[in-house]
Design a protein around this nucleic acid. Sequence first.
DNA 1: AAAGTCGGTATTGGATACAATCATGATTTC
DNA 2: GAAATCATGATTGTATCCAATACCGACTTT
Lengths: 212, 212
Amino acid sequence: MISDTNKTQSETIAVRIRTLILNGALRPGQPLRQEALSEQLSVSRTPLRHALQSLAEEGLVETIGYKGARVAELDRGMVDDLFEMRLVLEPLALRSALPQITKLDLARAEMALDAADSEEELSRLSALNWDFHHALYRPSNRQMLLRTIEQLNKASALAEVIASSIVVRPKKSASEHRKLLQACRNGDEAGAIAALGEHLQLAHHDIRTGKD
Amino acid sequence: MISDTNKTQSETIAVRIRTLILNGALRPGQPLRQEALSEQLSVSRTPLRHALQSLAEEGLVETIGYKGARVAELDRGMVDDLFEMRLVLEPLALRSALPQITKLDLARAEMALDAADSEEELSRLSALNWDFHHALYRPSNRQMLLRTIEQLNKASALAEVIASSIVVRPKKSASEHRKLLQACRNGDEAGAIAALGEHLQLAHHDIRTGKD
DNA sequence: AAAGTCGGTATTGGATACAATCATGATTTC
DNA sequence: GAAATCATGATTGTATCCAATACCGACTTT
C-alpha cells in the first residue's frame, strides 16, 4: 500500500512491536524495558521511544513518566466502550461510502478476506481484518471519521488477543464478513448496515465471554 | 489536576506548542522547524520531537517522514466529521454520567464556566471549554469513550481557531453551557441531552459559516 | 521492633554529535 | 533550449553519552 521508501525506523519498529503484542509474545501488563527491547530489535533507544509513544497514543501500551511503559490492559468496560463506539461510527462510515464504492474497493475487500482464510499469524490476521473494513469505508473519503475508526479497530485487536477469542473467531468472522461484502455488492444498504451491526455485536459478545 | 512533579519536558513543551497553535501564533499549514522551535523554547530537539509527535497523534499537527511537521489544516469535511462524531458520542457519555453525577462534578463544571466568562486567551478558553464538558462526562467512568471524546474536542478547538469564530462564539457558548448545566442539575436527562445536541450543532454551524 | 531517612542501583528522559534524506540550483547532455 | 543529473546545503532521523528520577535495601532513631 504505502511505499517502504520512507522507512523511518521508528515506524518499522512500531510495527514490529505491535506485531509482538498482537501475537501474544508481549502480554498485557508486561513491562517494556527500553534497553532490552532496543538491543533485541537492534536499534537505538531513541527511535524505540518514539515507537513506544506512538503505540501509547494508539492505546496499545500505557506509559507513565519516568516509570516506564507496559502493554496496555483493557478491562471489560473499555472493551464495551470500544464496541459501542464502533457500533455507531462504522455504520456511519459505511453508509457514506456505499454510494461511491467501486468494484476495485470490493475487490480489495475480497482479497483481504481470501488472504485471511489461509492466514495463521494473529497480527497479520488483525491487519487483514482492518484491510477489509477499511476497503469498505474508505470510499466515504471521510478522513477524520476513518482515523478514529482505525484507532478503535486497533484497540479492538488488542482486546481480541486478551480475550484469546482468536482461536474461534476467525471462522465465524469470515462468514459474517462474506455476508457483509455480498450486501455491499448488491447495493443493499440496509442489509449491509444490518450485517455490519450483527458482526460487531457478535465480535463484542465473543470477546466478552472469552475474557474471564 | 495532575501534579506538576512529573513534568517530563516533552509534555510541558507539547502544552506550550498547543497553546501557540490555539492562540493563532502558529497558523495552520505553517511549517514547524525543529531547530528553530527548540531554540525558541529553550529545549533540545529530542523532547521537541516527542511533543510534535504527541500533537500529531492528537491531530493538531501533521508530520511527514523526513519532510517535517506543519500545523494541521482542517478542511470542511474534517470539521463535519468531528462534529458528527461528537454529536453521537458525547450524548452517550452524558447519558451514562448523569445517574452518577455528584454536586462536586456540577460545581467543577460551573467553575469552568465562571472562569471562562473572564478569560481572554484563546488556548485557556478552549481548555476551560473542555474542563466543562469533561466535568459532566467524567462520572460515567468510561475511560475509552472519554479519551476519544477528548481527542475530538481538541481537534475541534483547532477548528475554531481556523474558523476565527472565537470572537463571537464565547458569548453564545456560555448561555448554551449554562442551559446544559441547569438541566443536569435538575436531573432532566432529556433536557440535558437536547441542550448538548443543540450546543454542538450551533458550534458546528458557527464554525462552518465563519470558515470561508 | 517499627517507621522514617538516607544512599546505591537501575531505568527513563534529555542533550549533543553524527548519518540519512530531501530540496534546490547549476551543469551537462541531447 | 529543455530535460535530466549531480552536487551542495538544509533539515530530519538516529546513535551515544550524560543527567534526572524512581525503586529498593540498609541503617538510624525513637
